[in-house]
Amino acid sequence: MAKAAAGNGNEIKKPRSACPNSGSAAHTSTNNATRSYLTKPQVRAAIAALDLRANSKLMRMARIRAFTAGFDTEDILQEAILRTLTSRSCPAGLKMEYFLMAVMRSIASAIIARRKRDEARYCSELDLVVSPVAPDEACEIAEHSDAWRQAFDDVVGGLT
């Protein structure tokens, strides 16, 4: 290793190569041919062995993801299991618990993104532009509301 002077006068040891991860095994390959995935029977066996008690790590994460997405806890977990069994490929070195957590995160993110898109679309279709109300208009609206409420109470009171 070569020594170099730091700005404060101290010497620092610098490695000779520019990147410490430049070796052949340092970076993971993006080539899917070299990756191994669990087979469907292995996935079923791993799911059957999961801890699904109320205070397990998987159920706690399901509650968090369900809360952020405005979804039911058991529904998001069942959807994650369904996707794992049908359309997702779980890498062989990854625990099933963590894989299901990632699938639930994906489901929750998709729900939130869809909700935001729908809100923007509905607001633009219906021309729902929320504009601030002037104080005098707010007072007028409150007076009209009170008058309508009183009239409604009179009508309902006359029926009893």
Rank of each mutant, 00 (worst) to 15 (best):
A62R: 00
K13G: 04
A80E: 01
V103T: 10
S89V: 00
R44A: 07
I111V: 13
G157L: 02
L77M: 13
D154M: 08
K13R: 00
I12N: 03
T68Y: 10
N31Y: 06
D136L: 01
K13D: 03
S56L: 09
L94K: 14
C139E: 08
D136H: 06
T160H: 14
F67K: 13
T28W: 03
H144N: 09
A5F: 04
R114E: 15
A48V: 07
A138K: 15
L126V: 11
D153Y: 15
A5E: 10
Y122L: 15
P91Y: 08
K3F: 04
A142D: 09
A54E: 08
S124G: 09
G9S: 04
S36M: 14
A120V: 12
P91V: 14
A18G: 01
C90D: 03
I112P: 07
I81V: 13
H144S: 12
S17I: 07
R88K: 15
I64E: 08
V129Q: 12
S145F: 11
Y122A: 04
P135C: 09
M101P: 02
I81E: 00
V130M: 13
L82C: 02
E140N: 04
S109M: 11
S87W: 01
T86K: 03
D127T: 01
T39G: 11
G9D: 00
A49M: 02
P20A: 10
L85N: 08
K14E: 04
A138R: 08
S89D: 12
R53V: 06
I12E: 00
T160F: 13
T28S: 05
P132G: 04
H144R: 09
K57Y: 05
I76R: 09
R121C: 11
Y98T: 04
I81C: 05
A80Y: 11
E79W: 03
G7T: 06
E143W: 12
E125M: 08
R114W: 04
I111R: 10
A33K: 07
M61S: 10
M96N: 06
A110N: 06
T39A: 15
D146R: 12
I47K: 02
C90W: 13
Y122H: 13
M1F: 04
V129P: 02
L58A: 03
L85S: 01
I76T: 14
L58E: 05
T84C: 12
K13L: 08
L100H: 12
E119R: 15
L85G: 01
T34E: 12
S56Y: 06
Q78K: 09
I107V: 13
V133Y: 04
I107W: 11
N8L: 05
A151P: 00
G9A: 01
L38C: 13
R60N: 15
V155A: 15
C19L: 13
Q150P: 00
S131H: 05
G23L: 06
S24V: 10
T84P: 07
E97R: 10
A62T: 05
G158Y: 14
R117L: 03
N31F: 12
R114V: 11
I76L: 05
E74D: 07
R117P: 03
